[in-house]
């Protein structure tokens, strides 16, 4: 029933990106568990890397879905991904070490039902709708879990709900100064929801290229990671937060420079203070 607006030509096939993104994201999330095993917080930055991996995958899923023209803006797809992901992610944090797996499975179930609703009940009839919403819910859950792990050092519910307040050098436990109690999850929600839709929204057009969009996805991921590292400062030790910040800035600088290079490669011309070129007929 629907017309496919743009074709995906060449490049890495979607399935490869999906599997690589899922595995990389899960592996990075589990690497943050080294914090619990070794009793430090220095491995928190792996949570940020998990979000980058998931966002790269997510940007390609959005491309896959939105190339059909879903009738409303690209950003709304990011909203539904995180709206369903946040619920699966918070439920999964109850399960300790199994949390990432539970999040993936539960998000897949929620995504499947939402996809069925959109495709069949709302009669959208887009071939990739169900698969895409499943993927997006999983990505939403993984990205939020990555930010949670990065900002608190762990993906377990107890560490998300408890924080410390420093008063006159004393460290007191507090529910208010925590990832959930302070609602930092709201910021993580928006960081992910914009980062997931931006790469495709910014790169769409007839000269869309896959490597440029994926590079931009990595750039958005690292940029969000910088701010997440700053927000982790009151929740984990300062040195661990600085490690995250350092990793994020290096990653962001590299991907941003690379992205500008790729844009230069793809652009029609790269002009500084030049007038509008003459085009025939206008």
């Amino acid at each position: 029933m629907t017309v496919k607006v743009e074709k995906i030509e060449g490049g890495i096939p979607h399935t490869t990106i999906m599997i690589a993104g899922l595995i990389a994201s899960l592996v990075f999330l589990y690497l943050t568990y080294a914090n619990v095993i070794m009793g430090t917080e220095y491995f928190a930055f792996f949570g940020g890397l998990a979000t980058v991996a998931a966002l790269i995958w997510g940007s390609h899923t959005i491309k896959h879905l939105c190339s059909y023209g879903i009738g409303t803006g690209v950003p709304s797809a990011g909203m539904i991904a995180f709206g369903s992901g946040v619920i699966a992610m918070l439920f999964a944090t109850k399960y300790g070490i199994a949390a990432p797996i539970v999040a993936v499975v539960l998000a897949a179930v929620i995504g499947l039902i939402l996809g069925y609703l959109a495709n069949n009940v709302l009669n959208m009839r887009i071939p990739v709708m169900i698969q895409s919403l499943v993927e997006m819910a999983i990505i939403g859950a993984l990205v939020l879990m990555g930010y949670a792990a990065m900002m608190t050092g762990s993906f377990e519910l107890t560490s998300l709900t408890t924080g410390n307040v420093q008063i006159l050098g004393l460290s007191l436990p507090s529910y208010q100064a925590s990832f959930l109690g302070g609602a930092l999850i709201a910021t993580a929600f928006m960081l992910g929801a914009i980062a997931i839709q931006h790469p495709f929204n910014a790169c769409l057009g007839p000269n869309w290229t896959q490597d440029r969009m994926l590079m931009l996805a990595a750039e958005c991921g690292f940029l969000s990671m910088i701010t997440a590292a700053i927000m982790s400062m009151p929740l984990i030790s300062m040195s661990a937060a600085l490690v995250s910040l350092f990793v994020a800035i290096i990653g962001w600088y590299y991907t941003y420079a690379k992205y500008i290079e790729l844009s230069k490669r793809d652009a029609a011309a790269w002009l500084e203070s030049k007038p509008i070129p003459d085009v025939e007929g206008h």
Partner: peptide, 27 residues
């Protein structure tokens, strides 16, 4: 604070899910 933040976040999340589904319905 936990209860307020959790309930608030879920309310926003479910609002967005429902609003986007309705937006799909009216294209």
């Amino acid at each position: 604070p936990i209860a307020v933040a959790l309930a608030g976040m879920f309310a926003i999340g479910m609002f967005l899910v429902n609003a986007v589904l309705a937006a799909y319905n009216i294209t």
